[in-house]
């Protein structure tokens, strides 16, 4: 699990940078800053792992984290009281952070395979942590293909990655779609599941990493099944309300499994063993 502070008490970290991704999504860089201004990561995370962000007097919420080396990145959509406050914050603000929590993606098991990434909306945040890992360890993985969809062109997050960084990586195909285009949008228009079916991605020796809203996941799984993907080769992440992060406060269970500790990454065949209650 590595270093970190997984007990219930947060440490103070500084928001060193805020990127406006879309009108309702921002990416926050969080770091420990020493007196000389040098930054270091509060802790390191594996792709798919979580961090609990704390705003004193407001509350805490769990987010997917991406390890940035000397900082952590949390891409956060405005959906409630805590995230509204976060979106009002300025660079230099301190917040509380604890983690890492959860299992993360099995990057070692995935070695030698092609990876099909499928993301919808803010679901690209956990997917991106896996993409970055694969890009950083490019030789360990086969062909990479990302299919990403958002509601409108304005809702596409990580545009620099999508349009500049990732297409430049060897054997990495990026396919984007939006539910509704606009006058300037030249790309594909349509929902993610249909687009995946249309793209007919390679199935042989391929693992799929799928994250997004439940409805997108549901229909995309139908398509993946039709294309011939086996449940053992599909990974997804789940979200539940969380408080402790260490499998004890009770609320994030799906059957006997605690999403904060045993998840949030589940292989589809493992997920099928659990009650359908998420």
């Amino acid at each position: 699990m590595g270093e970190g502070q997984r007990e219930l008490i947060p440490q103070s970290v500084t928001v060193t940078k805020i990127i406006d991704e879309t009108p309702d999504v921002k990416t926050f860089y969080l770091a420990l800053r020493d007196q000389g201004g040098r930054c270091s990561a509060p802790f390191h995370t594996l792709p798919g792992q979580l961090a609990m962000l704390s705003l004193p007097g407001v509350g805490e919420a769990m987010f997917s984290a991406t390890d940035g080396g000397d900082h952590l990145q949390l891409s956060i959509k405005k959906v409630g009281r805590l995230t509204d406050e976060l979106h009002e914050m300025a660079e230099g603000q301190q917040v509380g952070l604890r983690g890492p929590y959860g299992n993360g993606f099995p990057m070692t098991e995935m070695q030698g395979k092609n990876v099909l990434f499928i993301g919808g909306g803010i679901g690209l945040a956990p997917v991106r942590s896996v993409v970055r890992y694969c890009v950083d360890h490019r030789a360990d993985y086969g062909k990479l293909h990302l299919v990403y969809g958002a509601r409108t062109p304005a809702d596409l997050i990580f545009l620099d990655d999508l349009t500049k960084h990732w297409p430049a990586v060897e054997d990495f195909t990026v396919s984007m779609t939006v539910d509704n285009g606009d006058d300037e949008w030249q790309g594909h228009v349509g929902f993610v599941p249909a687009y995946v079916e249309e793209l007919r991605p390679e199935v042989a020796n391929t693992v799929c990493v799928l994250c997004g809203p439940p409805i997108m996941i549901k229909f995309t799984l139908n398509v993946l099944r039709k294309l011939g993907f086996q449940p053992e080769n599909i990974y997804t992440t789940l979200e539940m309300r969380m408080k402790c992060g260490i499998g004890k406060c009770g609320r994030c269970n799906i059957g006997h499994s605690y999403v904060c500790l045993d998840g949030p990454v589940y292989r589809l065949d493992q997920l099928h063993e659990l009650p359908n209650e998420y």
Partner: peptide
């Protein structure tokens, strides 16, 4: 054993994080 973690605010700036029993 289920519990909640919640803020007990003393004022706008300070407070205590408490753990208290919660229920499914």
């Amino acid at each position: 054993h289920c519990f909640d973690l919640t803020d007990h605010r003393r004022n706008a700036h300070e407070g205590t994080k408490i753990r208290c029993w919660d229920a499914c």
